[in-house]
Structures are given as structure tokens and as C-alpha cells.
């Protein structure tokens, strides 16, 4: 280690220290709590005093009659999400980036961004209002014109699509912001040069805009893989009903029913740990894949 290196590096380390302190104090120290997954935890005995039960909580999880169904439902929804939701904000960003009329662009962007602030209770409520089998506005129209009613909220085959489309509706405009920021970093000279070369807008999109996004897309996709077992609880719970239970029961709703309401903290922690480990494996795999194809990766 040379003195030159340290002169250069010391200020950089100093920049990192406050953030690092945060991670140590509020993230790493509490990680002793992961041990709760291997205990029959009682809040009165604490982490030090509760009884160790080894892998019992995990055995219980894997022995649940519904374990495979839970796994399948969770992965399927995540697959839908990665395949169809993940690209949506990219598409929105690319489209917005192509709009030259400034005021129009600003207005449209604000409109697309706004649904992010409407809570799931309201979004699901509106959907039921429109699509309820009997009283839903759209079903009444359909019936009036002599068509079959669509059992959108209760037919299990629609569940994943309803969930997905509501996600897109709520999140596509919001998610586009990060990609717009990446596009904003593109040097406008590139576009001018391409125009002089006679490239049309399609080709500029393909050769300038998308490559500019590649880096952030890869990073976001890797991070997304870490959450292949996670889904928002509230949204699914609100959409869930007796008829779609076969496809809508996921780890979050399951843990809510058997763990939290009973105060079974150890079991909830064990399920959480299981999900994290699956996420870690996925990320390690995808990160490596990214590096092999010449990308930066996240670590």
C-alpha cells in the first residue's frame, strides 16, 4: 500500500463510513434475530433465553400440505411480474423520451405517476365496482348487450392477470422515473450525430436509447431476482377470496394467517429466512451470469 493510494483513498473511505455505520448498527447488529428461526421464541425469555429447536420450524414449513402450492403460486406471480411488469416502466420511459413537446411530456408524466399514490384498497375497490359479476358496471353492460358475464374477481384463471394489470397500472409510470434519469444522461450530441447520418427515430431508439439503459436494467433485474419469493402482502390479500384461493395463496398471506395472528414469531422468521436464502441463490446465479456476459453486476 503506497502513500499515494491512501492519500487518494482516505477521503473516499470517509464518504462511505456514515452509510456503513448505518448498515452495521441498524442492519447487521439486529441480524442476531435471524436465530429466532431456530428457536421456540418467547418475547419474555428473549433471544438469549428462548429454547433452541434446531430446524423444527423449517420441517414444519416443508411438511405443510400446501408447501408446493405456495411455492408454485409465489413463483408464478413473480414470473408474471418479471416478464410483464418489469419491462413496463422501461417502455413508458422510452416512449416519454421520444416526446419532444415539453409541456405535453410533463403533463403525461405526472398523470402516469399519480396512480402510485392510490392505495390498494381503493384500486381493488374500483375493480370490484367495475367487474363484480352481478352488480359490476362492465358486467351489466356486457349482459345488456347479450354477452356472457366475466367472472373477473372470482374465476381463478383471471387472478394473476388482474393482479399483474393492477400492478402495471399503479407502478409503470412511477418505475419509469429511474429509466428516464438514465436516458437524461445520454449526450444529446449522439442524437445529433445520428440524425446527420440519416438514422430515423426507430434506429436511434435501438442504437442510442436502449444501450444507455442497459446498465440500470441489468442492475435492477439482478436486484429483482433477490425477491423472487416476495410479493406485496396487502395487494394479494385484498384480491384473495374463497374462489381463487388455489392460485392466490402465497407465503405472505399464509404466514399472516398461521403466524402473525397467533403471535408465532419463530415460524414467521423461519419462513422469511427460507425466502431470503432462495433469493440469495437466485442473485448469486444471475449476478454471475451478468458478469460472464461482460456486465458489472451488483457486487
Amino acid at each position: 500500500m503506497t502513500r499515494g493510494y491512501w492519500r487518494r483513498a482516505l477521503p473516499v473511505y470517509l464518504m462511505i463510513v456514515p452509510g456503513l455505520l448505518f448498515f452495521i448498527v441498524f442492519k447487521y447488529i439486529p441480524m442476531v434475530g435471524i436465530s429466532i428461526a431456530f428457536m421456540a421464541y418467547s418475547p419474555f425469555d428473549g433471544i438469549g433465553g428462548s429454547e433452541w429447536v434446531g430446524l423444527r420450524n423449517f420441517h414444519r414449513l416443508f411438511a405443510e400440505g400446501d408447501f408446493l402450492a405456495l411455492l408454485r403460486n409465489t413463483l408464478m406471480l413473480n414470473l408474471f411480474d418479471v416478464l410483464f411488469f418489469f419491462p413496463a416502466p422501461i417502455l413508458v420511459a422510452v416512449l416519454l423520451n421520444e416526446i419532444k413537446a415539453k409541456r405535453f411530456k410533463a403533463a403525461v408524466q405526472t398523470i402516469l405517476y399519480a396512480p402510485n399514490f392510490i392505495s390498494w384498497v381503493v384500486i381493488v375497490g374500483i375493480t370490484i365496482l367495475l367487474f363484480a359479476t352481478g352488480s359490476g358496471g362492465i358486467n351489466q353492460l356486457l349482459a345488456g348487450w347479450g354477452f356472457e358475464r366475466i367472472e373477473l374477481m372470482t374465476d381463478p384463471s383471471y387472478f394473476r392477470w388482474v393482479w399483474l394489470l393492477q400492478n402495471v397500472w399503479q407502478g409503470a409510470g412511477w418505475g419509469a422515473i429511474i429509466f428516464l434519469a438514465a436516458l437524461a444522461a445520454v449526450d444529446p450530441l449522439l442524437y445529433e450525430a445520428a440524425a446527420i447520418d440519416g438514422a430515423n427515430r426507430w434506429r436511434m431508439l435501438w442504437h442510442i436509447a436502449l444501450p444507455a439503459l442497459r446498465n440500470v436494467i441489468v442492475v435492477l433485474l439482478i436486484l429483482r431476482m433477490g425477491h423472487v419469493m416476495d410479493l406485496g402482502f396487502e395487494h394479494i390479500f385484498l384480491l384473495q377470496n374463497s374462489m381463487n384461493l388455489d392460485v392466490s395463496e402465497v407465503f405472505e398471506t399464509f404466514v399472516y394467517k398461521v403466524g402473525m395472528t397467533q403471535g408465532d414469531y419463530s415460524y414467521s422468521t423461519a419462513v422469511g429466512l427460507f425466502k431470503s436464502i432462495v433469493g440469495l441463490i437466485m442473485v448469486l446465479f444471475v449476478n454471475r451470469l451478468a458478469k460472464q456476459t461482460g456486465q458489472e453486476g451488483v457486487f
Binding site: 441498524f26 441480524m31 418475547p43 433471544i47 422469511g272 451488483v298
Partner: peptide
């Protein structure tokens, strides 16, 4: 990696509360 790891693993609400 230290930063990334916290995205996946967390100690849960009780130990954080104690901190």
C-alpha cells in the same frame, strides 16, 4: 456485498426495535 446482503436478510422487527 455488505450493502447488498441487507437487501435480502434482515433480523426482523424485534432486534431492530431493541437497538
Amino acid at each position: 456485498f455488505v450493502v447488498f446482503f441487507t437487501l435480502l436478510f434482515s433480523g426482523g422487527i424485534i432486534p431492530t426495535y431493541l437497538v
